[in-house]
């Protein structure tokens, strides 16, 4: 395996790149577990900081999970029929619409948030409620849901499948329930995981929209970096990783699967 020099070089470059990415992560995680970061590991390991983060920020964690789930439900309710409509009526108008709902991807989160604030900022009840952040998250994640489902639906002959079901006596609703949704499932799953992951990790837009009583996971992270001791901030990073990394992995798996089906 190590016979040729190119192989050795390849391995060295790969390991270096990994180290470049992983070492800061490991350092940060370790900082959250050491008694005193400035004295190093020799000061001993502890979960004290993790507990403190939990005490200080558990509300942020729950708010983020709640927001992510609410965002998932809303994007499903809007995204699934939208993707279905776009898939059933291909043409320039559908393509325009698809591009239009994808606009939030191109517009910076900050600008999107500013626009929302300008438009709704004066509605006090709405401005101060979690649904305000939800609106931002839905705007930002909806294109991922729609595109993910659309890719799977566009790959099959949906029209003929539905016609087949119709000749067998299925009403439009039954066709949607029995044929469209089950066959779109890989796309729905990939879209759902993407939406949840993005919603949990979204900072730009959320930071602009949040109030002191409504801090999400990443906003809390920024807060802890700014105002807490380094060990707490690092422990927070650790908790963030624990939540987001499995989701990221599941998202990768589901997207790869949906892409395979779309082919």
């Amino acid at each position: 395996m190590f016979r040729s020099k190119t192989k050795v070089l390849q391995l060295a470059v790969t390991l270096l790149a990994c180290a470049f990415l992983l070492v800061p992560t490991i350092l940060s995680v370790m900082a959250g577990l050491t008694v005193n970061y400035f004295k190093g590991i020799s000061s001993g390991l502890t979960l004290k900081w993790v507990y403190q983060v939990w005490e200080l920020y558990s509300e942020s964690i729950f708010l983020s999970i709640w927001l992510a789930l609410a965002c998932l439900i809303v994007t499903l309710i809007i995204g699934l029929p939208a993707a279905y409509g776009l898939a059933r009526h291909p043409g320039w108008l559908s393509r325009m619409l698809e591009e239009f709902i994808s606009l939030p991807l191109a517009v910076p989160g900050l600008a999107l948030a500013l626009a929302l604030l300008q438009l709704y900022g004066t509605l006090k009840g709405f401005r101060a409620s979690w649904t305000f952040i939800l609106v931002g998250h839905v705007l930002y994640t909806l294109p991922f849901m729609v595109r993910s489902i659309l890719a799977v639906l566009a790959a099959m002959d949906l029209k003929t499948l539905e016609e087949g079901a119709a000749t067998l006596g299925a009403s439009p609703w039954q066709r949607f329930r029995d044929i469209v949704v089950p066959n779109a499932m890989p796309g729905i799953l990939a879209g759902a995981l993407t939406v949840v992951t993005l919603s949990l990790g979204e900072f730009n837009l959320t930071w602009m929209l949040h109030t002191p009583y409504l801090k999400t996971l990443p906003v809390g992270l920024a807060d802890s970096y700014a105002s807490m001791r380094l060990e707490i901030a690092s422990a927070y990073t650790l908790i963030f990783f624990i939540i987001i990394v499995p989701l990221l992995m599941a998202m990768q798996w589901a997207s790869a699967r949906a892409q395979r089906i779309a082919k």
């Binding site: 003929t160 016609e163 087949g164 000749t167 066959n183």
Partner: peptide, 11 residues
């Protein structure tokens, strides 16, 4: 109805 490309439900 029997369709040209069968239109069997893959699910």
């Amino acid at each position: 109805m029997v369709f040209q490309f069968f239109a069997l439900f893959p699910n």
